[in-house]
Design a protein around this nucleic acid. Sequence first.
DNA 1: GTGAAAGCGCTAACAT
DNA 2: ATGTTAGCGCTTTCAC
Lengths: 348, 348
Amino acid sequence: MGKRPTIRDVALRAGVSVATASNVVNGNRPVGEASRRNVVAAIEALGYRLDRAASALRGQSTRLVGMVVPDINNVFFAGLVDRVEREAERDGYDLLIASSSEDPAVERRRVEALIARRIDGLVVVPARDDSLRSLKGDDRPRLPPIVLLDRGTESAGFDTVRADCEAGGYAAARHLIGFGHRDIAVLAHSEHYQNIAQRIAGCRRALCEAGLEGRERVVCGGHNLESLRGAIEIELHRADRPTAIFALTNICALAAIKAARGLGLEIPGDVSIVGFDDFDWMFALRPYLTTVAQPVDDFASSSWGLLMRRLSGDAADAENIELPCALKVRESTGPARSRLKAVVEAHL
Amino acid sequence: MGKRPTIRDVALRAGVSVATASNVVNGNRPVGEASRRNVVAAIEALGYRLDRAASALRGQSTRLVGMVVPDINNVFFAGLVDRVEREAERDGYDLLIASSSEDPAVERRRVEALIARRIDGLVVVPARDDSLRSLKGDDRPRLPPIVLLDRGTESAGFDTVRADCEAGGYAAARHLIGFGHRDIAVLAHSEHYQNIAQRIAGCRRALCEAGLEGRERVVCGGHNLESLRGAIEIELHRADRPTAIFALTNICALAAIKAARGLGLEIPGDVSIVGFDDFDWMFALRPYLTTVAQPVDDFASSSWGLLMRRLSGDAADAENIELPCALKVRESTGPARSRLKAVVEAHL
DNA sequence: GTGAAAGCGCTAACAT
DNA sequence: ATGTTAGCGCTTTCAC
């Protein structure tokens, strides 16, 4: 029940210097076979464990990586954290996690706190596209490599990983248009995110191609489920209500479903819904949601790969990876009924 | 663009000693008003930030807390992480997170890794009830305070926080019995967790009281959604299939819904389902799930409170907190139809 | 290949 | 209330 053994104890017991002991622990320099075996034996016997707090101070790596997400409670971000944690563990890194609550000020604080821990690198889903730009601007010494995930513009000089949201939006809108929909509501938390803007842009492109320019109505309802529901409900209440909703995030899709249900509208009979993001529990939604799936696994492995590349000293220009989305056609979308016909049917 | 300023630089610029500078940074000892202002000004001017890697090494606190969960991807655990992270941030701690993938061996490794980081404390949802017992047994020096959350037995000497699962199980079963259900399937990932066992025990108590002793059938299907679905599907296929399912976790509930739907069974017409855990997106499930809600917020604040108490030096006996569940009656449960009657109706 | 020694930046004694 | 100093446990020159 003594104190925890230090590397000095190991060296002493193995009859070598601390330098040699250190070198066998973290293979920085070659060590003779005899010494190595003695050291390994001593480590075993003493139950020695490297004190990372100390090696962090002296060495140049902490084997600690930070991750900041807007809201871990959101299944999409939770999935990202889960995947990145796996990558990190595989490579012997620990993951320091922080949530920004979608607030750039909180985010800034959290990022600073992580940097104060001397993390080797940072994966961030920023609260705003440019919320980390000021970091880069400062002539800050020792800013660790940062990769922006999902959100964030290419311009700020960070490595980025995101989905090809324009194509995703385009595919979803084409699908809806193919069913004859002409009045499409686009539900988002805000237009002021590059990924959201691109989803909208893709949607617009499809509409234009079909000669339906300007027929989309963009509805923004914030990050809150209830406020989103309220926002889309207003549209659904109108006489010329949309026959389809393109919900731009998983929360938006839930809000759209709730609003439609609350108003007694059938999905997809009265209103079609296509969502964004895909989760295995979604089959339990009735109807099973047609959605644009983002490549969550690739998000994690790509961002991790980018980070590791920087950590291994690569000083190339910022890289911007764009990954494809996939439209999953399921049950929540169908042919548009004319509203007039719908009214007549309702009175039968 | 020089190196990062150290506390020495601050002290120099403020015209005080490093000790004084340190004391204003982390208020360990009182400092005169004049000095304090000088130091604060110097910090501001230099853009100084405390290097936690260094203070971790020297001091006795790292202001770092670890959290280990079986699977962050599970919304229930993600919610826990989210809440604990909030508590931690409020108190100036950072959260080091790890996922055990429901594997005690992985968990052990992760816990050891966290301890090697000199974390101040640990919140763990253990992979097995007793997977951390061996830790306590070892005559390990400097084992940090650990609180077990959700799972884990009281016997191992750790502080614990969990729900009153027996009462939750009892309430759910009573509800089902009140609707006339006599054949109830209980779907769980495994019986070998104390919290699950208690949910089953509560269920049994209700059944006994109603003179229905032994009428429950416990079905275990592992942690995987599909394997759970397969397991309950078998029950649903039998001629004497249950008229109600009590799903003991949120994954189990999803699996039950999927199985019932796959077999074309109406919920609750053909089979009632009551779940466990409650999330705001569940309203999107049709029907809206009747469920036993666990007090997630209290889980987090209680476990955090316990941890902070230990960190402030309290050496009392292990405390075991039990929090109440709440049955939320919604749409997925209803009167039992006799199977015979159901068959007749089906042929009309 | 190996060892001796110098700190990393900070906090905690111990002085004053 | 403030200053001086000795390390925390480790990695890393720099010798040999």
